[in-house]
Write a protein that binds this DNA or RNA. Structure first.
Lengths: 220, 220
DNA sequence: TGATGATGTGGGCAGTGTCCACATGCATGA
DNA sequence: TCATGCATGTGGACACTGCCCACATCATCA
């Protein structure tokens, strides 16, 4: 526990994690390499031994988010096997609840701060993996005659867009309003339940368009 | 044309417009008050006579975008009267083509850099107006029995999410790839046509879920 | 053991946002 | 007509930032 070590030990991961803390607290614009180094208790130049520049640290932080996203995706794919509708909805819920819990991280990942084609293969791979999961879910749903036919890639992109849209609306606060008015003093689990109910409603239109059978909601 | 004027005349709008130029060229992170002032040919403190801080200039730039968006919305609402499906699609196309033409401005407007509740009423109004247009389009479509029943606000939010999602995918480059591979040497009009075709495909799933009658695409 | 390379250090530079006191000149009222 | 006030523009200053440099430390291994 000797804290006066000249060498920190695992500075790189410390930088990423405290970076994400600052991100959550102060947003992308509020992140400063020097402040991160200061709070870790390390010289203002130490980060440059691990990242070429600030942008690379941001990319590492985003990559961390993508990895968590993907890990959950693959777990969901197994958990909801043979239930493509459930897979799609739970995937959406996962992305959206991440957008609700860590809006700034979400905006870092999808807000254009990061150009996957410019940075290390890891980030691009992590981002592409999420897309690929969606494609295979769609294909599975088509096999089971649950989803409509058509190019799976196109359907996956469409689905991804819908999910992204909901997530952006949540992370940017446009949906939080109504969501919070009911939930301002609820627990995390409570908020999660309300979020799920809201997403269920908002996702229904899209989902009913994706499903093979005729509409189920004829409550008019 | 006397350029040695001590007073610039309409510095405020100059700041906004050259700000948007820089935004288009270098992204949100690349914007510097001092550089803007320098290129306008004005002292580095002049901007502070018109904006309390950098954030307020960004908000003014975003507001400009929202105003253009809304102007087009109301024009579309008249142009496609009695064709709710056309209204919805053209609204979507308009947002998305803005995201394609000025991705950085779009990200400024919707990427969480701006908190409408924190800033001048104008911005919030402009943003809310777009939403209100959508609600009335939906209501109209419900009256004409073109769209499914249900809470118009919920349907509008869902629609907005889908549009936002597609726009974000375009502005962040995730859809540009396929789009550009075909269009890298096309004119603006040509690219616009390709973009429209792509959006038509990707929007179809959602739209078929929104429409009252059973699915039209049974090409399986 | 002694060299080497990965990792951490402080100094320095240009650039930034924002505060301050001061300069300028247009409008307005005596 | 002219003085005056106020909106607007100016330069100086400060703390902060990202990033470059040369140098310090230390684990590893021949």
């Amino acid at each position: 526990m000797e804290q006066a070590n000249y060498h920190h030990g695992n500075l790189r991961s410390s930088l990423v994690s405290t970076g994400i803390e600052f991100l959550n607290q102060k947003g992308v614009a509020g992140i400063s390499l020097r402040e991160i180094a200061r709070t870790i208790g390390v010289g203002h130049n130490a980060p440059y031994r691990h990242f070429r520049n600030k942008q690379q640290l941001l990319e590492a932080m985003a990559e961390d988010g993508f990895r968590r996203l993907k890990a959950r995706y693959t777990r969901l794919e197994l958990e909801f096997a043979n239930d493509p509708e459930g897979q799609i909805f739970e995937s959406a819920m996962h992305v959206i609840s991440m957008a609700a819990d860590q809006p700034n991280l979400f905006q870092l990942m999808f807000g254009g701060h990061i150009q996957p084609q410019d940075c290390g293969g890891n980030l691009k791979l992590a981002a592409d993996d999420a897309m690929q999961s969606l494609v295979s879910i769609i294909q599975n749903g088509q096999r089971l005659k649950v989803f409509i036919g058509g190019d799976p890639m196109t359907l996956a992109l469409s689905t991804m867009s819908m999910i992204q849209g909901l997530a952006i609306m949540v992370s940017s606060g446009k949906l939080k309003v109504q969501f919070q008015t009911q939930a301002k003093d609820a627990s995390w689990a409570g908020r999660q339940t309300l979020l799920r109910a809201m997403v269920l409603q908002l996702f229904e239109v899209f989902l009913s368009g994706l499903k093979e059978n005729t509409k189920t909601h004829l409550k008019e």
